[in-house]
Design a protein around this nucleic acid. Structure first.
Lengths: 154, 154
DNA sequence: TAAAGGCGGTCTCAAAAAGAGACCAGCACT
DNA sequence: AGTGCTGGTCTCTTTTTGAGACCGCCTTTA
């Protein structure tokens, strides 16, 4: 019996003309938005359906942590000290439901629970990581923009 | 007088060993998280401070639209038909404050307002776009994961 | 032997954020 | 004189988030 392999694809692994396909993708996306106003199903927009799930306050942070190594519930809690237990539970549940995170219970006493990234999660984090790197490199630029804006308009 | 040039940097334009720097970045990031529990300033974490601003329900969608071309307020409203006027105003305000979006009022009658990406916004969208592309390519995989999860656990 | 603490959560209640929809001034067109 | 378009603001309700108490079970400490 053949092993069921992952079917998701990586971004940017194939060598294609990036700029051209970018423009095409954007145009088709916006046509989808427009068609939605005529009664289409809004959940067919990947930006909403997929990225929405990563929009939570804690999702990116937990993905970044789990991308480094698997962690247990309490370890994550200590790693991100200002998350409430409630939101940690819920965020991990959502990430698990979307297929990014694997949850495994070990029959120790008391039982311990380990969270780790799935292949899909690692694939997604490859893209998310670009954004995280950008945030680190341009943190100051964003802060300057905010300061300038606040100074100008109060 | 020299023209003041943008100082932000692009991700991935320089040729560096991607995997190694990735691991280093992740480790240092997690050490920052840990040090925050000892009284550090939590806003120094770029993942929180920068990506938080993009976490809104509508930010990614509006960035994608404005990456294609500048749009006016009413045009954006029609493009994203289920956004409320209130959230459109507020999200554009936030994006403008963070330096991604430029707002320009034209003295027509009635006055019209055009929103466009700044250089910083285009730079950031370069990274965000990776995530959007991933979402498009892997939309089905995520949907399958959700369906399987819901079927298993109700 | 009793008390305290780690484990991974759930439950309740208050605060913050988002959504729905009315309303606004100014001008053009009919 | 009425309607519509411009880009919003204001209020009210619903949803989401946050703070923190509580839970049973087990181990360690005093």
């Amino acid at each position: 019996m053949a092993v069921k392999k992952a079917v998701f694809r990586e971004v940017g692994t194939a060598r294609e003309p990036a700029v051209d396909s970018t423009i095409v993708n954007l145009r088709s996306k916006l046509e989808i938005y427009k068609s939605l106003s005529d009664g289409g199903n809004i959940a067919d927009c990947p930006v909403r359906d997929v990225i929405q799930g990563l929009n939570g306050k804690w999702s990116s942070l937990l993905m970044a942590a789990l991308a480094e190594q698997p962690y247990r519930f309490g370890e994550l809690r200590r790693l991100v000290p200002d998350i409430s237990q409630r939101m940690l539970t819920q965020t991990l549940y959502d990430l698990q439901r979307d297929g990014y995170v694997h949850r495994e219970v070990f029959p120790t006493k008391p039982p311990s629970v380990e969270y780790s990234l799935t292949d899909l999660g690692r694939s997604m984090f490859g893209a998310l990581h670009q954004l995280i790197l950008w945030a680190e490199l341009n943190h100051d630029a964003v802060r300057d923009a905010r300061a300038g804006f606040d100074a100008a308009q109060g």
